[in-house]
């Protein structure tokens, strides 16, 4: 019985450390990356792996403490797994709507960020002609 407790303590400690290291890596990416489209990567790691590991540790700890399965933390896990892609999608849509600047190394060429040449030439032409004496 004591061997079981020691083993479970090691498992819980491993999940806690792994989850917090994942959260730290995600937040470091959020703080250090160059443009918004890169920064969007970090929080997905936090909300799936980081908090997921911590909630698994909590499930194991309270199951051991109460002597029976306690699966209430799975609610938070499932909720975060469902809502994280939805909020990331809405954030990227709002960033594309605001036409945020991007790093040249960011790949892809979405049509929201493409500058249509016809409109710019049409806008520049009257300004150029108005500057003439």
């Amino acid at each position: 019985m004591i061997a079981l407790y020691t083993l479970m303590e090691g498992v819980i400690a491993f999940f806690l450390i792994a989850g917090s290291i994942f959260a730290l890596i995600g937040s470091l990416g959020l703080a250090r990356m160059k443009d918004f489209y890169m920064r969007l990567h970090g929080p997905s790691k936090i909300s799936t792996l980081g908090v997921g590991c911590v909630l698994l540790a909590s499930i194991a700890y309270f199951s051991l403490l109460n002597g029976g399965p306690s699966l209430q933390e799975l609610l938070i896990t499932i909720f975060l797994f469902i809502t994280a892609p939805v909020s990331a999608h809405l954030l990227s849509k709002s960033a594309l709507h605001q036409k945020l600047p991007r790093d040249p190394r960011t790949r892809g060429n979405p049509e929201e960020l493409q500058e249509d040449d016809d409109e710019t030439t049409l806008e520049e032409a009257p300004q150029g002609s108005s500057k003439l004496p």
Binding site: L16, G19, S20, A23, G26, S27, L30, F36, R39, L40, G42, P43, I46, S47, G50, V51, V54, L55, A57, S58, Y61, E73, I76, L80, A84, S87, L91, S94, A95, Q98, L100
Partner: peptide
């Protein structure tokens, strides 16, 4: 920009969930 701040707040609430669970443990 504004979406950067919203993204950071979103990450902050996820992190605070983990902190509260740790406090409960």
């Amino acid at each position: 920009s504004l979406p950067d701040r919203i993204l950071a707040l979103d990450t902050m609430y996820v992190n605070s969930i983990a902190l509260i669970v740790l406090f409960g443990i």
